[in-house]
């Protein structure tokens, strides 16, 4: 069992499973009313939630205008709302986090299932999934107080030396910035990738492994040619879910990215400082006043739509994959 994975309910509810029950009837009416009331109430709150975000975003759109997406100066205090640095910051940190977390996460999941003695499997995967329950703020503290100084003093200078200062490993190294953000995000999403990949890999019928072995395949061939292709959909689902998480991460990134600078606002090198959509909302929220505040609601809405779509996609991929082996 995993901590990040939530058992999806099957598509057909209990009622379609052949048990037609009319609700509410006679003295059972109170029960039916209670259910309907809560269902309606939650539904109304969901709609109200969307309505509030949309309604408060509109003045923000009008205030900031379409030049939001074409200008590169984000300076909340001066009413300059070029979100390109934030969009690029979000994309960069997420992309490089995935680049680190996916091979390590999937590799670790394969190692857990195929290379570790069975009685140790649960313990090892539980330990890795421990990372999934660490609160965002603790990652923020770890990133800002441990990783930032390590990267600034050792990691980034080393990268720069190895690359002979060539792009993208050029310019000032501060510890804080895109590289640190990507690393912190990678650590946060890696357990998601591992946990779901492990579930998917375990579900591959052992007949396939045996079939390949009996043809003379080596262990490496079995995993690469048979297991991984069978798990492709499930792993794509895991990665999509992790992407949703990474795009929306706020608190852990708010203190490790270093902030958008006026001189070179776009994150154009590995050690550039910057910010992400979600982190910037948290950072600027304290200074919220008037129409400028509505711009933050607009950002929140953009973020919500993107992450909501990604998460929905992920869940449908994972669900389809679960059906495949049934």
């Amino acid at each position: 069992m995993t901590t990040t994975h939530i058992d999806p309910p099957t598509d057909d509810g209990a009622l379609s499973a052949g048990r037609e029950r009319k609700l509410p009837t006679g003295s059972d009416r109170a029960y039916g009313y209670t259910l309907w009331t809560v269902l309606t109430l939650v539904g109304v709150i969901v709609f109200y939630f969307i309505y509030v975000l949309v309604k408060n975003s509109i003045p923000g759109w009008q205030f900031a205008g379409w030049k939001m997406f074409t200008t590169t100066t984000w300076s909340f205090g001066d009413n300059k709302f070029g979100v390109l640095p934030l969009v690029m910051g979000t994309a960069f940190t997420t992309f490089f986090a995935l680049l680190m977390a996916v091979p390590i996460g999937v590799g670790a999941a394969l190692a857990i299932v195929y290379l570790i003695p069975r009685r140790l499997q649960l313990a090892v995967s539980s330990l890795i999934e421990l990372l999934a329950v660490v609160p965002s703020i603790v990652y923020g503290v770890w990133g800002a107080l441990v990783m930032a100084s390590w990267l600034g003093n050792s990691g980034e200078p080393w990268l720069k030396r190895v690359a002979h200062g060539a792009w993208p490993f050029d310019g000032a190294t501060a510890g804080y910035g895109m590289t640190l953000g990507a690393i912190v995000l990678a650590v946060m999403i890696m357990p998601i990738v591992t946990a779901i990949s492990r579930d998917v890999i375990v579900a591959v019928p052992k007949e396939l492994t045996e079939g390949a072995l009996s043809l003379g395949a080596t262990r490496g061939q079995v995993i690469r040619k048979v297991i991984l292709p069978s798990c492709k959909t499930g792993i794509v689902g895991a990665v999509t879910l992790a992407t949703g998480r990474a795009l929306g991460e706020t608190i852990a990134l708010a203190t490790v990215l270093g902030g958008v600078t006026q001189m070179s606002p776009l994150p154009d090198r590995a050690f550039a400082t910057g910010s992400t959509l979600a982190a910037e909302i948290a950072i600027d929220f304290g200074a919220i006043t008037g129409k400028a505040g509505n711009v933050l609601f607009a950002l929140a809405l953009i973020l919500m739509v993107i992450v909501g779509a990604v998460t929905y996609l992920a869940r449908s991929i994972i669900r389809r994959n679960e059906r495949q082996f049934q």
Partner: peptide, 9 residues
């Protein structure tokens, strides 16, 4: 094997 196990992919 007992159950046909062609490689599904």
């Amino acid at each position: 094997f007992q159950r046909p196990n062609p490689f599904p992919t």
